[in-house]
Every structure is written in C-alpha cells, then in structure tokens.
Nucleic acid binder design. Structure first.
Lengths: 209, 209
DNA sequence: TAGATTGTTAATCGATTAACAATC
DNA sequence: TAGATTGTTAATCGATTAACAATC
C-alpha cells in the first residue's frame, strides 16, 4: 500500500503494465529498463518510472527492472493474487454473453450463479448454470460470500438491483446497464458502457484528420 | 466541424451528454441550464459550457440550452445521424455475444455478417447469420461497403486480421482482442478491454478507503 | 571502475475551474 | 427592465516530461 493518493490516470495504466510484463515474462525476458518498456508499451520512460515509484522501489540503478518480480508486484497492486466469487444479475443478452465469456474466469473471477426476475427465464440453463430467482439474491450473496456482481439488466432495473446488492453486502459491481451508478461507501462500482466506445469510434470516423 | 483540436477528455464526455440529453428529451424537458445539467450529469457547469462551446454557440444567455436542439447537435457531433454497416471477425464467445447484443443495432450499426477461419464454425448459424469463411472477407467488405469491423479473435490473430481489414479498406475497428492496435492513417481503432475494467475494480476493492 | 539506469525533484504542459462582461 | 445564464478569458490545479544526483 502506498503513502500517497494514487491518481486515476495512474490506476488506468496499471492493467497495461500487467499485460505487457506478462507478455515479456512468457517470452522469457528477464530484465527490462524503463526505456525499453517505453518502446513496447507506448508510455514515456519518465512516466513509467514515475508510475512505478508510486508503489515502491522496484528497479535497480544501472540495471533496470526484473520482469518476473515487477510482474508480481503489479499483480499484487491490482489485487489479482486473490480469488473472487461472482454472480450475474440479468439473464438477457449481455448476461448470457458474460456467462459464456470465460476470460474473467482465467483471472480468478469465478462465476457462481445467474439471477433473473422473469419467470420464463428462471430455471433456464446457461452454460451449465440454471438461472435463479432474484428473490433469493440476498440470501445467496450472504451464504456463498459473493464478492462481485455483474449488473446486466436494463437501465431502469439497474438502480433497484444496485440497492439490493448493496444491502446484501456485495463488495464490487461491474455495471453494464446504461446508467452511471455512483460508488457508495460500501460498494465499488465500475461502469462499462460498450456503446460509448462505439460512439467514440463514430466521432473519430466523422472527424478523421 | 470545429476550428480547434478537441481534446480526448472532451470527446470522452460527449457520449454522456448524449445519453443525458436523450433522457431529458424523453422526459419532455424543453430547456436546461448548465447549472441544472451539472447536477444530473456530474460535470461542473463551467466544464459543460466549456465543452459545448468548442463545437458552437448552442445556448442563449439568460435562458440556457434547448434540450431537443442540443441533443441533435451532440448527435451530429458524434456522427450518430449516420447508418453504418458492420461485420464480426471471430465467431467464438465474444463474437457470438456481440452478434446477440442488439444495443449496437439500436444506434444505427447494422450487422451484415460474421466471419471465422475455423472450418468447424463456418456455416454455423448465429442469431440468423451463417458464419462465413474469412477467405471471403476482403471481397465482402468491398462489395457490401462495410464501415466497421468488430475484432473478436484472440490476440495473436488480431494483428493479421487488422492488416487484412485495413487493406480491404475498412474505416473503423472496435477491437476486443487483448492487444492494443494502433490507429493508422486509414483506419480508426477503439480498443475495448473488458478485463481492464475488471482489474480496475479489483484495484479499488483492494485499496478501498 | 565506467556506463547505464533508477527514483525524485523541478519545469512544462494541458485540463479544469473561476470570474465576469455580454446579452437574452 | 432586471435577473439569469451564456461564452470566453484568466487563474488554478493536476498530470506529464525533463533533468540529474545517486548508485548498481
């Protein structure tokens, strides 16, 4: 843990360091300097040293950084050395997509259940999970000690679902509904808005050069 | 089109303005001041006026902004007044998810085809689309005048696919593979990395307060 | 040892906020 | 008209880059 408040700009770069160092590691690279890393990752060498020094002194003068050790440090900083239990709320298109998208599973986020409120979806099998009734949501979260929920409902229901999750003691939410849910003191929220990525693309298409 | 170079920070806020104004519009709100909008959207009134003034003089002193007119302006700025033809490359989990995720369709992005290189996937039906052979990719893009491609392959194949798409004359790419593809002069790229959102959540879970 | 490269301080650059004249 | 609110300029704040002493 660091003494200073880490800016959001730095935090957003951490996953890139993680990925890049992971690739170097798997290619068998043992050491890397901020200058070499800069060429690969696209941040300035100065920025790389600034960023990393926020969390500790990981490098050696005249030598650079040990790839394996630095990778582990970044992993720890990001909390990727832990396992998390997750659930999906909403068994529609996005919910089903997340259920099938096994990438999260590869990083230690284990899916435990899928919930919906619609009678015709409850009981349906999605990738080996029987859709559960949202009425049992709170009980399940507490009994199974669920850490993270994916909100995959529509925007209107998302707010009710958020309140329910928060009261049930969920720790984190990845929200795919088209509302910006605000962090409260208990729950950490990440809003993921795929259409906004598309709109940004659209902007650049229209305003190219 | 504006005289100044618009910063990325401003561009990222545009979809939020679009969504918020859309909601106000559908609720029948006719006018809004930067101060009122600030309370809803969470940006400062000053920032809202700064942002909007980059693109024109949309407000009226003493009155504020007309919701409908401003919404249309933002729509135009983002290029959402156009229709786009899209294709999916990669019929795995993400590819299938995008095919079923009809949100993009709601905003004028019409899916025209799904491609894969794997023999066992070609011909498979996904949401009404028969998976096509990637060998026909270039021909299809040119004949059907495709604007945007979703790259839903793994990271290694993504680079080859990108080159192929670029040569075929695609205009924009929404990349879901775990590589950062770089914009070249012809193609506009948006990299969407879902795991990075999860990692950010993970960071905040670990470093809460 | 000499060359290389870090961690950190200072300088620069860019983005956000504040202030206010213009004016509906 | 008087009050409200814009668009814009100036001030502030924060993030990135440059520079360099420390040292492996």
């Amino acid at each position: 843990m660091s003494k200073y408040k880490i800016s959001l700009a730095v935090i957003k770069r951490l996953p890139k360091y993680h990925r890049c160092l992971g690739e170097l590691k798997s290619r068998g690279v043992r050491r890397i300097s901020s200058g070499e890393l800069s060429k690969i990752i696209g941040f300035s060498a100065s920025q790389i040293r600034q960023d990393l020094s926020r969390f500790g002194e990981f490098g050696q003068q005249g030598y650079g950084y040990r790839v394996n050790a630095l990778y582990s440090e970044v992993e720890k900083i990001l909390g990727l050395d832990k396992k998390y239990s997750t659930i999906i709320i909403g068994a529609g298109n996005i919910g089903q997509a997340i259920a099938k998208y096994n990438d999260f599973g590869n990083y230690g986020y284990e899916l435990k259940a899928i919930f919906d409120i619609k009678k015709d979806l409850i009981g349906k099998d999605i990738n080996g999970f029987k859709v559960m009734d949202s009425n049992n949501l709170r009980e399940f979260i507490q009994k199974e000690d669920i850490d993270i929920a994916y909100i995959c409902t529509n925007a209107e229901n998302a707010i009710d679902v958020f309140n329910e999750l928060s009261e049930a003691g969920i720790k984190g939410i990845l929200n795919f509904a088209r509302v910006d849910l605000q962090n409260d003191d208990n729950v950490v929220i990440e809003n993921v808005h795929l259409v906004e990525n598309m709109f940004k693309l659209s902007y650049f298409l229209k305003n190219k050069n």
